[in-house]
Amino acid sequence: MTVTLPPPSSQFQERRTLLYQPGLKRNRFNRICNAIAATFALIAILPLFLVLFYVLIQGGRLISPRLFTELPPAPGLSGGGIGNAILGTILVTVIATAISVPVGVGGGVYLAEYSSRGWFAQFVRFGNDVLAGVPSIISGVFIYGLIVATRFFFDQSYSAMAGGIALAVLMLPTVIKTTDEGLKLVPQELRWGAYGVGASRFVTITRITLPAALTPIATGVVLAIARAAGETAPLIFTALFSPFWPEGVFNPIATMSVLIYNFAIMPYEAQNELAWAASFVLVILILAANLLARWISHLTKA
């Protein structure tokens, strides 16, 4: 049995070899586009590597045990460390986390589980998105006006608590958003299953839905902490600065970001070097937090 193929139509070009031909117009065009895209991608990540590299070179060589245990020197003297600022950053971030996580997770739970997508929930979501875009210095001024200027806590003005609250304002939108989105990812069948065995809404949320969404929520919280730990603007006029060891939650406190801001532009070599060292420690901390977030987000896939 023979099959006669129809002759190729003359309106098309002649049949060519199936082998790849680099000289073809489409192949040349393809290579050029690839090259352009790759170049822009390289340019895009260049700042990241330059910043990391420069901070590592400038700050990395200054790392020593003294850096973590000593106070900054008085102007004109040399040596010293940034122990108080490291401690201060940790303290302020812990305060901010302690405030923003309960409020943020609670708000996210309300949006995703309780609100029936009415106007109030829409309004809260919209407000949350706006809050996420508010410049960080605005949250600083806000807390300054609300707490610092009014001497809200025990007649103290600048304090670690005020700084922590200012950072909490910055962290809130991220925590609310990730909780809301994380809960939306929980399959509806899981909630039905819990209701089906007679669980109330509260039990369903605390025992089934929230644990199921723990990974995205924890990732969001860690990323929010990483962002807050590096903020300067909200701390300048809330936590202020202190050349001494932290005296308490309601006193001014040194933080690494404000230390960098203060010391980097001082006309003293020792202070400038400490600013670089603090930059290095801060970058490493934030890098570690991001890696931790990635690790957490991989947990469920395993």
């Binding site: 399959p187 069948e189 899981l190 039905w192 299953g193 819990a194 089906g196 007679g198 644990p211």
Partner: peptide, 13 residues
Amino acid sequence: RIGMVFQKPNPFP
């Protein structure tokens, strides 16, 4: 008092 089994198996995690 009236339990339910769903179309898709939905064990808790």
